[in-house]
Design a protein around this nucleic acid. Structure first.
Length: 335
DNA sequence: CGAAACATCCGCCACT
DNA sequence: GTAGTGGCGGATGTTT
């Protein structure tokens, strides 16, 4: 990771989360994450805090991949030494990826010339101005231009990082990381984000797509792996292999995850009885619903509903008293 | 909660 | 020889 003054905490965190955590117990290879800074000493992050680099800039030279987090001020200076290092790495065919406004750093080094790139949607025009020879795309989460990759806003950075992992290590490893990232050890409250858009590592080209869609729209039927196989016109054994290769998940696991998700949705948005929620999500019985929710989310259906249900309930006190000064970036807008 | 019935996963191997 | 398919069976996990 290339750490510059004003790097955004979120992007720094995503990179750290994907490559900085030992997940060898789930079959993820061992990564070495170097946090390379241009100066000796801590760099200020945005919107607050500082981070001490673990390595100097020169340590980028023998990395397999360089990731550039976005900066709060996209137009902030890029030190000449950084430009030189990035160019040299690019010459040496090192993969370079920028998250969000990190694209401007690549633009400053001329690495986006004559290729496609993207960035946060609020910055697209500015990127086009800063990099006139770049084909700036507005309709994508990220652009994979082979050795130079760029990503759109915040969530696009996560997608891009997982894409990089998938490219280098296969869909299974990417799925293992994604699973660990979106299904945190759950507690009773907070953290809504893992509920809605799952970072499903979707197959890039799938003969299975029709079957997945079909299963998803019939989740209330007790469909099992053999029904999936029948629908796909494959034997169970082959479905298994194909499925694993395409999604990094096994069919049974996938089905179960879909069911739990549907149950979550129903709990959030309806007041059906547990029994009905279990039926409609294909989980069968209320007992089973409880069991599955507990093992996937660590929470009982009742607590889940009370935490995330749309009907307001009296249990959540507002933060008491004292105004807190808003935490705002003094430099750039919110993006 | 535990026991019994049922599914899934996956290495192995034979077949096309 | 390589590549893909699919049946089998036992360990493991899930549901009743």
């Amino acid at each position: 990771m290339l750490l510059l003054p004003g790097s955004r905490i979120f992007d720094v965190a995503v990179v750290s989360e994907v490559w900085g955590i030992d997940r060898t117990d789930t079959g993820v290879p061992e990564f070495q994450l170097r946090i390379c800074g241009s100066e000796a000493g801590a760099e200020p992050l945005m919107p607050a805090g500082k981070l001490e680099p673990t390595h100097r800039l020169t340590a980028l030279r023998d990395c397999d991949l360089i990731v550039v987090p976005g900066r709060a001020d996209p137009h902030a200076d890029v030190p000449p030494a950084v430009v030189r290092t990035l160019r040299a790495a690019h010459q040496a065919r090192t993969q370079i990826a920028a998250l969000c406004s990190g694209a401007f750093v690549l633009a400053a080094a001329g690495l986006l010339d004559d290729r496609q790139a993207t960035t946060h949607w609020r910055l697209l025009d500015q990127l086009a101005a800063a990099a006139p020879r770049t084909d700036v795309r507005s309709d994508v989460l990220f652009v994979d231009a082979d050795d130079v990759l760029t990503s759109a806003g915040v969530a696009g950075g996560v997608d891009l990082c997982l894409h990089l992992v998938r490219r280098a290590h296969g869909v299974g490893v990417a799925a293992a990381i994604a699973r660990r990232m979106v299904t945190p050890p759950a507690r009773d409250g907070g953290q809504r984000q893992y509920v809605d858009e799952p970072v499903t590592v979707r197959p890039d080209k799938v003969p299975l797509a029709a079957t997945l869609d079909w299963a998803q729209s019939h989740l209330d039927r007790p469909i099992g792996v053999s029904e999936l196989a029948a629908h796909a016109g494959l034997s169970v054994r082959t479905l298994h292999r194909t499925f694993l290769a395409a999604t990094g998940e096994t069919p049974g696991r996938w089905l179960q995850t879909q069911r739990v998700r549907r149950a979550q949705q129903l709990l959030e948005t309806s007041d059906l009885t547990m029994h009905r929620v279990a039926e409609r999500s294909g989980l069968g019985t209320a007992t089973n619903l409880r069991k599955r929710l507990r093992s996937h989310l660590g929470v009982s259906p009742d607590i889940y509903r009370r935490t995330f249900g749309s009907r307001p309930h009296p249990l959540r006190p507002l933060p008491a008293g004292g105004e807190r000064p808003p935490l705002r970036s003094p430099v750039a807008g919110d993006f």
